[in-house]
């Protein structure tokens, strides 16, 4: 029986008095690759933002390693959705990856050689060393995603939260990202990934949470990834009746 890295109990979140997620009880196993799937508007992004304490829940609580999220943020590496980033910002690839070190440095200390070395390591893991001085806006979608994963690696957290990291990227990058995730898992890291492609869930992940406003099913792929659960999540009628 493995330990839970995240425990969510009775979590409900409402935006403008409309419940987006409802009575969520879930656990993410330590050292797992857990996918969050569900139709559009199922509350996937809301769920991961609540886990990171980025919005105020209506009720319920989240614990990360038995601590409140606020005190566990240092240990979470977050990979944002594409639309959240200001692509006009003048910054190079290496610079973005170095941002992953900020949490460890304290805010007012400068980066040193060890930080740069860590960033270069992360870049080479993602096969992006050659691009280190490129401006982030000059990269393709797949290359950008690699940079953000490199930033997360550089952050050196135990737990990774990713919001649709595989959306709109090339197949080579997709494979590289999944291989990297598996390699990191072998080193003891845990992953919670919002995922949109139902065809690849079994291949890429070992645990799954099927969400549609509340949790439809969760557990290992064998336990939870069943046709009736998927149908239930993606069939609107099951929600309103």
């Amino acid at each position: 029986m493995t330990r839970n890295i995240i425990e969510v109990s009775d979590l409900s979140v409402a935006y403008a008095h409309n419940p987006v997620i409802w009575h969520i009880n879930l656990a993410v196993k330590a050292n797992s690759r857990t996918a969050v799937v569900g139709p559009n508007g199922a509350g996937k992004s809301t769920l991961i933002k609540s886990i990171m304490n980025l919005n105020k829940p209506l009720s319920g609580k989240v614990e990360i390693n038995g601590k409140k999220p606020k005190h566990a943020l240092k240990n979470i590496a977050y990979v944002p959705q594409k639309g959240e980033v200001n692509w006009d910002f003048p910054t190079t690839v290496l610079d973005v990856v170095l941002m992953g070190r900020y949490v460890h440095k304290g805010w007012f200390k400068r980066m040193n050689k060890a930080d740069v070395a860590a960033a270069m390591d992360a870049l080479s893991t993602m096969k992006m060393e050659a691009f280190k001085d490129r401006q982030i806006s000059e990269l393709s979608g797949g290359q950008r995603q690699r940079v953000f994963l490199a930033r997360a690696i550089c952050h050196d957290a135990d737990f990774y939260i990713m919001d649709e990291p595989l959306q709109g990227i090339d197949i080579t990058t997709e494979k590289l990202i999944i291989d990297t995730i598996k390699a990191l898992q072998a080193k003891g890291k845990s992953f919670l990934v919002v995922h949109h492609n139902l065809d690849t869930v079994e291949e890429y992940f070992d645990h799954v949470i099927i969400l549609n406003k509340s949790v439809i099913a969760q557990g290992t792929i064998e336990e939870a990834w069943k046709k009736e659960n998927i149908d239930k999540a993606y069939d609107d009628r099951s929600v309103t009746t």
Partner: peptide, 9 residues
């Protein structure tokens, strides 16, 4: 439950 489209618990 119907108004806010809440799933049955």
């Amino acid at each position: 439950r119907i108004k806010y489209e809440l799933p049955a618990s």
